[in-house]
Amino acid sequence: NLNDLTQWVMDQSASNANEVGAASVEYLMVFGYTALAYMWAKMAVVALTHADDTSGFYKAKVGTARFYMKRLLPRYIGMSAAVKGGADPLYELDDEMFETA
């Protein structure tokens, strides 16, 4: 979960300052997916109390929330794995390796 991932980054960065920068993009993506999941869950709770609505608005909210949870939110798993890949792979290649002749 996000708390565990945050703690992991903090623990790793205590001995290697490069870990924060290396984790930043994927960590923020995980944070964003988590925040959106929270918001969709809140919307779904409200929408479920409007079962008598005939416009389809609330039904669409519940359907979209389900879609998000089942199809988009699982992306956090790969992003979390990338964060835990650490900083070392980013620093294995020297600048000189990218120079052209």
Rank of each mutant, 00 (worst) to 15 (best):
K42L: 13
K59Y: 04
K61V: 15
Y27V: 07
M10I: 11
G63R: 05
M97V: 00
M79N: 03
E99T: 02
R71K: 14
S15I: 12
R66D: 12
M10S: 15
E26A: 15
E96P: 02
L90E: 01
V45G: 09
G63V: 01
L48E: 15
W8F: 15
Y33K: 05
W8M: 12
G63C: 10
L5F: 00
F31K: 08
S13Y: 01
L72Q: 09
Y38A: 12
E92G: 06
A22L: 07
R71N: 13
A17S: 03
L28Y: 03
E92W: 01
L93R: 03
G32D: 14
L28Q: 12
E99V: 01
A35P: 09
A41S: 11
Y76H: 05
H50T: 04
E96V: 09
L36T: 04
G32N: 10
S24L: 14
M10R: 11
V45E: 15
V46D: 14
V20G: 01
Y58Q: 11
A65Y: 00
P89S: 04
R71S: 14
V25H: 06
Y38R: 12
Y68A: 08
A60H: 01
S24R: 09
I77P: 08
L5Y: 00
K61I: 15
A22S: 07
K70H: 11
F67A: 14
V62M: 10
G78P: 06
E92S: 08
D52N: 13
M43I: 07
V25F: 05
F67W: 13
A23E: 03
A82D: 02
Y76S: 05
F31G: 06
F98M: 04
Y91G: 05
M79V: 01
L48H: 06
A81G: 06
A51M: 12
W40S: 02
K61W: 07
K70T: 11
G32E: 15
A41Q: 13
